[in-house]
Structures are given as C-alpha cells and as structure tokens.
Nucleic acid binder design. Sequence first.
DNA 1: ACAAAAGTGTTGCGTTTACACCCATGT
DNA 2: ACATGGGTGTAAACGCAACACTTTTGT
Lengths: 244, 244
Amino acid sequence: MNDYNHPAARYYQEVSEQCIHYLSIDGVIFGFHQNQLKVLLLRWKGTNEWSLPGGFIRKIESVDLAAQRIMQERTGLDALYLQQFHVFGEAERYNQEETWGKINLPLQNVNWSARTISIGYYALVEYSRVVPAPDFLTEECRWWNVEAIPALLFDHNHIIQVALQSLRKQLNDQPISHLLPETFTIPELQRLYETILGSTLDARNFYKKIMASDRLERLSERRAGTPHKAPFLYRFKSDNFTTE
Amino acid sequence: MNDYNHPAARYYQEVSEQCIHYLSIDGVIFGFHQNQLKVLLLRWKGTNEWSLPGGFIRKIESVDLAAQRIMQERTGLDALYLQQFHVFGEAERYNQEETWGKINLPLQNVNWSARTISIGYYALVEYSRVVPAPDFLTEECRWWNVEAIPALLFDHNHIIQVALQSLRKQLNDQPISHLLPETFTIPELQRLYETILGSTLDARNFYKKIMASDRLERLSERRAGTPHKAPFLYRFKSDNFTTE
DNA sequence: ACAAAAGTGTTGCGTTTACACCCATGT
DNA sequence: ACATGGGTGTAAACGCAACACTTTTGT
C-alpha cells in the first residue's frame, strides 16, 4: 500500500532511520513588519489548516543545529538567532484523532499516532530577508500577525503563547537587532518593543532608556519619504552576539 | 554473553522497550542544611565516580511526570517541586570513551555508546525529609555541598552550573519554601538566599524586603537552644504552590 | 559584664515614571 | 497655517542600598 517513490515516503523513511523518535522541534519564527509582530506559519497540503514549522533531530546531530537546519529550510536564512525556550512533554499534548482528521496525510501507514515531545525554539529574524518556503507536507508558508493567528494544528497556539511570554520576559537580554533591518528609526524600535510587550511606551522615556544603554549609534542620514519630520536613522553598534 | 536474569539486564530491557531512546532526564536536587546548599549525587557501583540522578521517559508518560518519578525514587518524597530548566543537546556532550571507561558497567553489550539528549530539571526539596536511595547502578546516594562537588561523570558538573544559574535568576519567582522546614528563622532564610546567590546580604534590607513581600507569618515561639538571643520562628503563609 | 546574634528605622541615591514643549515636514 | 509625528528636558515617585543602635541571652 506504500509508495516508496513518493517524496513523503522517502522523507519518512529517512526520518525513521536517521532521526530520534518521539522527539521533535517546533519553531516560532518571529518577524517584524509594518509595526506588526509576525510569526511564520505553514498551511498543510489540500487543507486550510496551519501549523508551526518543525522537524526532527538526527541521531548524531546537536539539538541546536537541528533547530538551525529546520528553520533555515523555511526561511532561506542561515545563522538565525535561535533561543530554546521550553519542552512540551505532556502525554496528551493535543487531541490526536481530531488533529489527524484535519490533515490529508499523503500516506496511510506512517505511524503518526505516537505521542511526541517537542522542544520549542523561537527565532528572531529580519522579516525582509526571509523567503518563506513550504515543505512537502505543506503548500503555503507565510507570515501571520501574532494578534490574528487562527486555530492551529496540534498545540501550536499554546506553543506560540509560551514563546511570546518567554520573549517578553527575556526582551532586554535578547538581541532584538535581529528583528530589524540594518538601519531603523527610534520610533520604529519603539513600535517593536510595544508590539512584543503588548503595551504602549512613553516615547520620551523610551528614548532616554535606549540611549542610556549605549547600544545604538545615530547615522547622519534620516528616513526620507515620511509625511512629517524626517527621523534619524540608527544602527546597533557592533552586532557582537549572533547565536547568543 | 548476556545474563537476562541480572537485574540491570531486566532494567535495560524495560527501558529499551518502554522508554524513549536517545533522550533522558537529569535531575539537580537541591537541599539546604546547616547553611549549605546541597545537591544529591550517586556513586556508581565499584567506583569512586559520582553523577546526578537521572532516568528515561516512558513512551506514554509526560515528561514532567517522568521527572517526578525519577526524583521520587532517589529521595523517597512525592510531589516534589520541579522546574525544567534546559535541554542539553550537544552532539558530543562529553567524552564517551573516557566516561564509559570510568564505570564498571555490569553488562557488556548494552548499547550505551549512542549520544543522549538530556532534559535538565532541578528540584527544591526539604533536606531533612529526604531518604537518599541509590539505584541498582549505584551503591551510594548522598548530599554534597554545592561548593565541594568533585569531578562528575558525563557533563554533570556543567548541568549543575546551569541549574544553579537558572535558580539564581528565577529565585524570586520560585517557591523556596520547599527548601526549608515548616518553620524557620529569618536569619536562616537569609543564609539560604545568600548561599544560592553566592553573596552576602544586608540583614536589615533583607528583613524589610521579605516582610514587604507578605509571604511570611511570625509564630509566637522562638528558636530555643541558640547561644544568643532567641530568634522568632516564621512560616510561609499558605504554601499554595506545589508543583507550580 | 560582655560577646554575639536578633531585631528594627532613617537617609540618600539612582532608576523609573509622569508630563510639556518646540521642531521639522508634507499637505 | 496647520496637522502630524519627531526629538528632547525636568520634576516627582519609587525602590534599593547604605548605614547605627538597642535588645536579648548564654558564658
């Protein structure tokens, strides 16, 4: 009943042989565009069901590198900034029957019914550099506003919530520069903080604080094309941290 | 060459059949006694080599419950306060050959050579209630001062360091009451903070801060038998949180 | 009496919050 | 000119750090 020439079949074969069973990685890839915090999601083939990108860990591969590999494949970027944030290990993370019912699995007898533990990573990436690419189980890969995420497959809504909470808690220790283009304005940076924190900030206090941190340098240029006063452009001084 | 009546053989058999491969749990069990922060370690049979307690996750078991089970077996306590703190997933976490050479494995052909990913949990337990119990690979289970831990097997020194860092960072959000007996004095509580943080605190400021938090209630009794002024006993108000 | 630890209050500093005004630009 | 957002300073509040003295008790 099994078509071993089916690309999915070959993939499962590979995963089954080379990867660790019962364990996966799920990635919450954060981007920032037009003052909106975004997450990269995948739509499964022939359905209207969305999920986070994810994958499996090879038996001989470090978990961090596995996460890199998986996220690279969906974004086209290398050397992403990744942060492990939680292990989701409930015995019943989600309703299995219901979930499999929603997906048109290309194969019948792949054993998908076993429980899976998932290691959650979030990534901070520069929106404009990402070239979203679906995998062969999915036919669409695109950004969604964090505020407008639909009901996802598995427990992925929950995972995004936990990722967001972690990001909020760790915001001041994370290299948020990865979410922004090389140059940006202070108001843009403030919007980024505001979207992540989900609250508004006082522009004057924000300015003071961010300047006191001494991580920014002001360029001589200003952002053109704005309807009002042209804001200065800034850049992060020596992006020293890459993968933490 | 394999003795299937050997208790270790049966254990390996069970683990191999029922548990998830390539994935384990390591536990850093913190206790506090005589103003010292302690960690529970195991000495392997016929050796002078020590390691953290650990174990495997059953295919149908939640990761948190697996951690509970493993720590319960070493401490004799149930409903421990546990906190997942990091996944150790390097491809080469430690020198395998060197490590296996140090241990007298009771069996020849158990495949111990594969890499293992480990989920790190720390536990906060009340020292005096613990009845340390070795497992069948080890012949001694006892507390060690955090400051005097020897070179351990695997990467367990590293894991303890990361656990301690996490605990320090999260100290104010953790139910440290679990590390103390039902009643205790303020100076004792201060010693606990100091040992975890690795620095001394101002008694006056500490007193104010801990009182302002409104988590303690003073009892009418005082600690007897002290060489000097008898300190009041305190208790944490309604230990609401158990396993967080 | 005295040594050693317990118990408490006051002050100052630095960080964060609240708040107001001028500037530049496109319409 | 005016509406809109950018850019900055100042004052009050709050939280944390520094610090000194009295109390109690065993020796």
